[in-house]
Simulated assay, not measured.
Amino acid sequence: MSSPEERIRELGLEIPDVVAPLASYVPAARTGSLVYTAGQLPIVKGELAATGKVGAEIDPERATELARLCGLNAIAAIRAEVGELSRVRRIVKVVGFVASAPDFYGQPQVVNGVSDLLGEVFGDAGKHARSAVGVAVLPRDAPVEVELIAEVD
């Protein structure tokens, strides 16, 4: 079986640089065998890929793509913390926050963007528990934010 890094390349993706923190925190923190990522926004090359509320300015399909970008940024933070992605034994938990218009109820489908990416990259080790939460606003007016907990060796 190919490594997670190889699978990312096979998907036509590349692991981005770790997104610099927007405030007083670190991108990822390890305690024992667990790595917790900070909330990751859909930032590409230092710029937020989109702004607005899902179900208003952002359509759900675009939001799902943005959740995938958040997941890629979380993967980058994990790799920076542990050195290589083959050290990930399991993605334990995903929390996805979706800045939602008042009448938008499709948060689980939006967060599938990151869940599907994790399955493609880590296979069975990418299967995880998850929360998908609708919120009024996210930092910098981002439509989606994702955080992960990974078990590593």
Rank of each mutant, 00 (worst) to 15 (best):
S86M: 05
S86F: 04
S86I: 05
R87F: 15
R87M: 14
R87A: 15
R87D: 15
V88S: 03
V88R: 04
V88W: 02
V88E: 09
R89C: 04
R89I: 10
R89T: 13
R89F: 07
R90H: 13
K93R: 15
V94G: 10
V95K: 14
V95I: 15
V95W: 00
V95R: 12
G96A: 07
G96Q: 00
F97E: 14
F97R: 14
V98K: 12
A99I: 13
A99T: 13
A99P: 13
A99L: 13
S100W: 02
S100E: 08
A101L: 12
A101I: 11
A101N: 09
P102D: 04
P102I: 01
P102L: 03
P102H: 01
D103G: 01
F104N: 11
F104V: 11
G106M: 02
G106W: 01
G106A: 07
Q107T: 09
P108V: 10
Q109V: 11
Q109P: 00
Q109T: 06
Q109C: 00
V110F: 07
V111L: 06
V111G: 01
V111H: 04
V111Y: 05
V111N: 00
V111W: 00
V111Q: 05
N112G: 00
G113S: 03
G113P: 07
G113M: 07
V114L: 04
S115K: 13
S115N: 07
S115C: 00
S115A: 09
S115H: 01
D116V: 13
D116E: 08
L117H: 08
L118D: 14
L118S: 14
L118P: 14
L118Y: 14
G119A: 13
G119T: 09
G119F: 00
E120C: 06
E120G: 10
V121K: 08
V121W: 05
G123P: 07
G123Y: 02
G123L: 14
G123H: 10
G123R: 08
D124W: 00
D124M: 01
D124H: 08
A125Q: 12
A125F: 07
G126E: 12
G126R: 10
G126C: 04
G126I: 07
G126V: 10
K127G: 06
K127L: 10
K127H: 01
K127Q: 13
H128V: 06
H128N: 08
H128A: 12
A129K: 07
A129W: 01
R130L: 00
R130G: 03
R130H: 12
R130C: 06
S131C: 03
A132H: 04
A132K: 01
A132R: 01
V133F: 03
V133N: 13
V133I: 15
G134D: 06
G134L: 02
G134V: 02
V135K: 13
A136E: 15
V137D: 12
V137S: 14
V137H: 14
L138V: 11
P139I: 11
P139G: 12
P139H: 03
P139Y: 08
P139S: 08
P139D: 10
